[in-house]
Amino acid sequence: MSMKQAVKLRRPVLKQLTQASLQNEIVLSHSIWVRIFHWGFTVSLTGIILTGLILHQPPNFLVLNFGKVFIVHLASSWFAMGFVALRITDAILRRDNSLIPKIEDLKHFPKLLGYYFFLRPSPPPNRKYNSGQVLMYFSWFLLFLVASLLGLASYWQGKHLLWVWHMVGGFQVLRWIKFAVTIYFLATIPLHIYLSLTEDISRLQAMVTGYERKPPP
């Protein structure tokens, strides 16, 4: 895959790594755009979700300026959409299909579940991401696009995107779907954080540095 290209590291870093008599190979696993997307999206989605929940039900222990909460929601949404656009462009340019589920991913899924339920000692082989990750990330993309579409429809108040209104059948339904999407994000994000902290910590640091240490092929 294009991901595992030869590495160009800054010289002092490389020197230190060689001095540490490293056997494994250093490979690039996350391109710079992927990392920018990941952390940018993390921040903006957190903003969207927190302000969305406040818009849904103003908490009685916080007196926030609602006009500003609303602006934060909108601004975070525009940023998040921008980051997603960036990631999609990057994926198209690099022909990166690591986030698109394939049949073989689905075939591995039961075995992966077996691993998570402690029925198997190790996870089945996978592409860049394992089948659970692919499914979850892909569902995030889809649901983010759905929620953004609904958000834009309500933002334009029926001036544009009339077909969206006809499809969902009213503002209350639109709100309800966005709330459901938010709950889905809130339920799956902790899972994502938990598994990235406990399964493969070098993948986590790779999301910062971009590089991962792998045994030579």
Binding site: A20, L22, Q23, F118, T198, E199, D200, I201, S202, R213
Partner: peptide
């Protein structure tokens, strides 16, 4: 079950032998 220890050691330790 020790899975967390195993995963963290395997993916964080440097050296010839993992």
């Amino acid at each position: 079950k020790g899975r967390i220890h195993k995963n963290l050691l395997k993916t964080s330790l440097k050296g010839k032998h993992q």
